[in-house]
Design a protein around this nucleic acid. Structure first.
Lengths: 126, 126
DNA sequence: ATAGATGCAAAGGGTTTGCACTTGA
DNA sequence: TCAAGTGCAAACCCTTTGCATCTAT
């Protein structure tokens, strides 16, 4: 049976509130504002549980720790800001991917990440 | 000054021979056939040096240790076999990426990874 | 009451670093 | 010769796990 704890609520709330994929550290920082003694292990345990229960999906970016976002969204990709490191959700996708697959290979999925500067960092750049 | 050592030659040869992006472990395994006492730290140090000197480029895949491939190739992407874990080079790219970028954001690059089964794994599947 | 959840600290896995020894130029 | 390079082990970072304690139910 799954219990409702202050820690778990704070973690879920952080992810619902933030509006973009969050890393474990980001979740910890935000959830600690509600539950001060919160430990990183609890964050990891809950993220894992929430993924297994289908409430979250992991967002894995090249060379980066995994982020997590709410499940149930349409197929989409992400934008990674090179300045602040935050990840944003994009809409839409690309086509003609199959044309890139070599003969004899079978494609079952794809991942696309755009890089650059997000709105905030773009404004504040020198 | 940069010296020519048996270890470094074996590492470069492994990368030249393999024909696809290699992880540090793959490099170690292949290069050890030439230099038996080779240590993983030496592989990491040389990979890093070869990247800095512009001979290699890192290939970073979501949730995976970095691979390395020879520098100087045209813009391209990669295929990651879900069965054997090997990474293959693809040719071509996609367009209309800019259309996905939110207003106020600036795109400076992108990464695309296709997933599926490579030729060998496709043949041997049940 | 009691099994699930938490916090801490220790353990893991991959990568990097410190240091004494080896070796190429 | 002697600084660059190597191997080993320890250090690191991020993530997971063991265990005693705490707490929803």
């Amino acid at each position: 049976m799954i219990r409702k704890t202050r820690q778990r609520s704070a973690i879920r709330e952080a992810l619902e509130t933030c509006g973009r994929p969050m890393s474990p550290d980001e979740v910890l920082a935000l959830a600690q504002k509600k539950v001060s003694g919160l430990g990183i292990a609890t964050v990891y345990r809950n993220l894992k549980a929430l993924v297994e229960e289908g409430w979250l999906v992991p967002v894995e970016l090249p060379g980066e720790p995994a982020r997590y976002e709410l499940a149930g969204k349409d197929h989409h990709h992400h934008f990674h800001c090179r300045a602040c490191g935050r990840v944003f959700e994009l809409h839409g996708c690309v086509d003609k991917l199959v044309e890139m697959v070599p003969a004899g290979f079978a494609m079952t999925g794809h991942e696309l990440v755009l890089y650059g500067l997000c709105g905030s960092c773009q404004v504040g750049r020198n």
